[in-house]
Structures are given as C-alpha cells and as structure tokens.
Amino acid sequence: MIALLKRDLALAVRAGGGFGLALAFFLIVVTLTPFAVGPNSATLSVIAAGILWLGALLSCLLSLDRILALDFEDGSLELLATAPIPLEGVAATKAVAHWLTTGLPLTLVAPALGVLLNLPEGGYLWLTLSLAIGTPALSVIGTFGAALTVGLKRGGLLLSLIVLPLYVPTLIFGAEVARRGAEGMSLDTPLAILAGITLATIALLPFASAAAIRINLR
C-alpha cells in the first residue's frame, strides 16, 4: 500500500498540472469573489470563511476524475484488483494520495488566501483546522464518486452531479466551524461532528468504493 501511495504521489507530481491545478483554481475562485460581490471589506470578511470552504471544495472536485481514470485506461486498475492487497485498501490509498496532493496543499494555502478576503483575525486557526479535518472526507467521498463513474467515457460532469450532494454535510459543518471561529463563537459541536463525518467516511466508504470498482471492472 505504501508502494502504491508513493507511486500515486510520484505520478501526481510528475504528470504536471494535476498537482498545481487545484491550487491555481482555488486562487482564481478567491480572486473572482470580490469582482462578483464588490470590494467592500466588511462584506468580504463576513463571507470569507464560507467562500474559502466552497473554493476548497470545488478545487477538490476538479481533480477527482484523475483518481482512478488513468489507472483504468492503462489497465493498472485491473492489476491492482488482482494484487494481493484488498481492493478496499487500494481505494483507501487512492483517497489518501488524492488528499495529500489536493486537500493538504489547499489547507496550507487557505490562510494566505484568507488575507485576500479580509478574514477576521480569529478565523485563521479555525479555518485551517476545519479544512485539515474536513478535506479528507472530501477526498474519500470523491474517490467513491470516481469509482462509480470510472467506466464511463464522459464521466466528469456526472461525477460532479453525484458527488456534490454527498458533500453537503461536510460543507455545512466545515464552513460552520470556520464561520463560528471567525466570529469568535463556540464551535465544539460542529468541530466534533465534522471530525465524526471524516472518520466515519474514512472507515466505511472505501468498502463502497471497492464494490463500485469491482462492478465496473467486471
């Protein structure tokens, strides 16, 4: 599994574009926001936490179809399915690789982009923390969506349609943590639920993803 993880990471970094694309997209979303809502810094600071979460979520969505599609096309997914490690482990590893190349960098640049949107002072820590806790769930759910649509020729748009409703709970609680943190309110409950969602999806969804991959490979 570690070898597979290393291979996926190397491919993501070397294949060029895939790695930095999500970050660039995140930056563009944040840049475009003031053009859409106006440069009033008071308005921006109110919506900053939500926009950053939404931007991170959409950037995450961009690279989902790469999780499995390339391996499916060149046949290495079938090799992985017959490999000694269980397919559930493969699905989990793919999700981890996706998070390390997408979720983690997004989390790290989010505070910097928060400055652009005039995020209130107290919000930086909680924004980063909520993204760090929440984005793994986005990667795992996204891997499930990718597994469902891997056999399709033009699955990209369908993938978004399937995955976005599944993102609702994560987005609600994640953005709630960031928003409450920015406003200095108590945030124990949403933080705990967000962590719960992430842990539950990591524990359970790889099984569903593996089942979907098996169906698609048959």
Binding site: P165, V168, P169, E176, I193, L205
Partner: peptide, 18 residues
C-alpha cells in the same frame, strides 16, 4: 449509489437542522 446516498441524505437532513 442509492445506499450510500441514503446515508448521506439522512446526514444532510440533520446537518441542515443544525
């Protein structure tokens, strides 16, 4: 998808109340 979606739909319902 229907089974996974059901879990997430229920989860969303409670998330929305919150």
């Amino acid at each position: 998808l229907c089974i996974v979606g059901s879990v997430f739909a229920v989860l969303s319902r409670y998330a929305l109340v919150f």
